[in-house]
């Protein structure tokens, strides 16, 4: 049970996991929560808020909210966020708060991977994996499942390797068939796992890290940073120590909390837009329709709270999004026509 302090809430709602962080006014991480999104971000966020509510004191207050991750907009609507930020900035902010001298961030999550270059505590360059998701957490998950080992043990087994085998890392499909081939030849499991770690790291550095000026101190964050096999492979490949920060798995959410703190803390008169801890019990619905106003045929998403429209997005022109709360374009319309005020 946490005390009755004031907290900043950071939420990182990604494709694989939903992370929540409570940051106290004294800049201490009071609570971290890691939930699997499982394709249901709305329910997961509400679940998270319920857990949060059960863990903090009755008179504890949320005084600022920041959201990030691929469902940041959805999370912001549900929670009532003060700051909405992309993952890159959120990760960079968190890392530079933890260690202001950090110059490189390697981040590998469930479906994406990115590299962020910082100089003097601000982002100077970044890259994300482009069209291919090879070498992200989901792929490691799959392979661990295929080999029948828990993902938590993956890295420790890889560390036991005597002579890692060479595995093609360019593409996850090739990597998998290469791995099966090496298994059939009789190579030991740790050697194969270590080989896979090396292949992933090579792939990451060749694609995401291409042309980037990687200088220490280097932070390694995101879910995959839990894997010591990957950590070791990075250290070998880069020839430098890799630092895994304490809250490596929730750095995005932590960054969002810091950003909320900056925004709300700076303007003393500004009150948070947080919608309250009871939102775990409110009925939210989402629905979508295709607007036929022009050739873009945008898929517009509507978020409803107990029947009334909370937010809309997905339209490129802003016709639907801007109309929320203005009384026009009310209600769902298959034809994309105005249905009166």
């Amino acid at each position: 049970m946490l005390g009755n302090d004031n907290y900043y809430l950071g939420a990182d709602v990604g494709s694989v996991s939903t992370n929540l962080v409570l940051l106290s006014e004294k800049n201490e991480v009071a609570l971290t929560l890691y939930l699997r999104t499982q394709g249901r971000p709305m329910q997961t966020i509400q679940e998270g808020i319920k857990v949060l509510r059960s863990k903090i004191g009755k008179s504890a207050k949320i005084i600022g909210v920041g959201t990030t991750g691929s469902a940041r907009q959805l999370a912001a609507t549900l929670l009532g966020a003060d700051v909405i930020k992309n993952e890159i900035t959120a990760h960079a902010v968190a890392a530079s708060r933890v260690n202001p001298s950090v110059q490189t961030i390697l981040e590998i999550g469930g479906q994406d991977s990115k590299i962020i270059i910082l100089r003097d505590g601000v982002v100077s360059d970044f890259a994300m994996n482009t069209v291919c998701a090879a070498g992200t957490g989901s792929f490691l998950d799959q392979q661990a499942a295929r080999l029948g080992i828990p993902i938590e043990e993956f890295g420790h087994l890889a560390l036991e390797a005597a002579s890692p085998v060479k595995i093609a890392g360019r593409c996850s499909v090739f990597a998998e068939s290469d791995m099966i081939h090496k298994q059939q030849l009789g190579h030991a499991l740790p050697d194969i796992l270590a080989g896979l770690c090396q292949a992933m790291v090579r792939n990451y550095l060749n694609n995401v890290g291409k042309n980037k000026d990687i200088r220490g101190p280097i932070f390694f964050q995101g879910g995959v940073a839990a894997n010591p096999g990957i950590r070791k492979a990075f250290e070998e490949e880069l020839g430098q120590p890799i630092i895994v920060p304490e809250h490596f798995g929730v750095m995005g959410a932590l960054g969002a909390a810091y950003l909320a703190q900056e925004k709300v803390g700076r303007q003393s008169e500004l009150r948070t837009r947080f919608r309250g801890l009871q939102l775990g019990d409110i009925q939210f619905n989402a629905r979508s329709f295709e607007c036929s106003g022009c050739a873009n045929r945008c898929e517009v998403v509507e978020i409803l709270q107990e029947g009334s429209i909370l937010a809309r997005w997905g339209d490129r022109c802003g016709k639907w999004a801007n109309a929320v709360g203005k009384g026009t374009y009310k209600g769902k319309s298959q034809e994309g026509e105005q249905q009166g005020a």
Binding site: I84, D125, E262, Q267
Partner: peptide
Amino acid sequence: AFVDLLERPSLKGISETSREGVSLVGER
């Protein structure tokens, strides 16, 4: 993220801009 990166130098010493989503860039 790219816009955040670019806004950084011009943000120094300037108070909060009003645009949601692109303010507070890379500041410490």
